[in-house]
Design a protein around this nucleic acid. Structure first.
Length: 271
DNA sequence: ATGCGGACCTGTTAGC
DNA sequence: TGCTAACAGGTCCGCA
């Protein structure tokens, strides 16, 4: 479910209800996520006040005076605020009772996500340390991408989805940004000119910011932290539209698999 | 070093 | 209608 816009939408949705609250209790109902949830997590967070919730790539960082709680939503995870007595469901693996009386719940059917406790600087955690720049920050430029792709013969789609190069660009927005930029997903990264990288970088920024503005993409059942569905799905030009007419030229969109991920593009508009 | 396939899971959908 | 196979938002690991 979550790419960067969904994670950011979640963050913005829960911040007003979680930051400045004390965690009264923390329950682990199922610790078997991608990595085992540390058994001492409740002891670490109980009685602590959430000072801030930050995002790095698709990771959320709940900052406390004593350390940080790192959360990743994996492929199917969500964080929701529920009020009071909403019944806990099958895949609600963790919950935090806040001093306000609200309850934050972590749900993740596929359990590809993670919840860690990190002492010290969370940005130096092994999972975060070698991540590339944030796509929406000024340091993500065409110069940077051009430089990083010299000598790389991997398809450009694989490169933009590589979190060591740039974080937060998942399968949906990689497809969308490449379509908007008019670049074929299979084109080798090292044969793309600086000028075309200029276009691509702008398209990545545009696609991601637009998706955030619209509250993330609704596929299946995505809902942000406030329970409101996202509205970006109706804006998708290629993702999920293989075989259907290109919105620009009308030719049938091609569909191939790249890194085991469905890749959709227009062989007429993208070169 | 880079690039790729496999693995981790469950739920939903497509196809026979 | 019912069963099975394929596929789904991510990303780490290990082997070429």
């Amino acid at each position: 479910m979550p790419e960067l816009p969904e994670v950011e939408t979640t963050r913005r949705g829960i911040v007003p209800h979680v930051v400045a609250n004390k965690i009264d209790q923390c329950f682990i109902h199922n610790s078997r996520l991608r990595y085992e949830v540390p058994a001492d997590l409740p002891a670490r967070v109980q009685g602590e006040v959430v000072k801030d919730i930050q995002r790095r790539g698709k990771y959320l960082l709940f900052r406390f005076d004593s350390g940080s709680m790192m959360v990743h939503l994996g492929m199917s995870g969500s964080l929701r605020l529920v009020t009071g007595e909403a019944p806990r469901e099958k895949h609600d693996h963790l919950e935090w009772l806040l001093s306000s009386g609200a309850v934050l719940r972590y749900r993740d059917p596929r359990r590809f996500g993670l919840v860690f406790w990190v002492e010290g600087d969370p940005f130096e955690h092994p999972l975060l340390r070698s991540l590339g720049p944030e796509p929406l920050e000024p340091e993500f430029t065409h110069h940077y991408l051009h430089k990083m792709t010299r000598g790389r013969k991997a398809p450009i789609k694989n490169v933009v989805m590589n979190s060591r190069i740039v974080v937060g660009v998942g399968n949906i927005y990689a497809n969308e940004a490449l379509f908007m930029a008019g670049i074929r997903p299979l084109r080798m990264a090292n044969q793309i000119s600086l000028a075309r990288y200029d276009v691509l970088v702008q398209c990545i920024k545009t696609v991601l910011s637009r998706a955030i503005e619209q509250g993330g993409t609704t596929l299946r059942d995505f809902v942000g932290g406030d329970g409101q569905p996202g509205y970006f799905a109706q804006t998708l030009a290629v993702y999920g539209r293989g075989g259907q007419p290109c919105l620009r030229c009308g030719n049938a969109l091609k569909e191939v698999r790249l890194l085991q991920r469905t890749t959709v593009y227009c062989s007429h508009c993208q070169t």
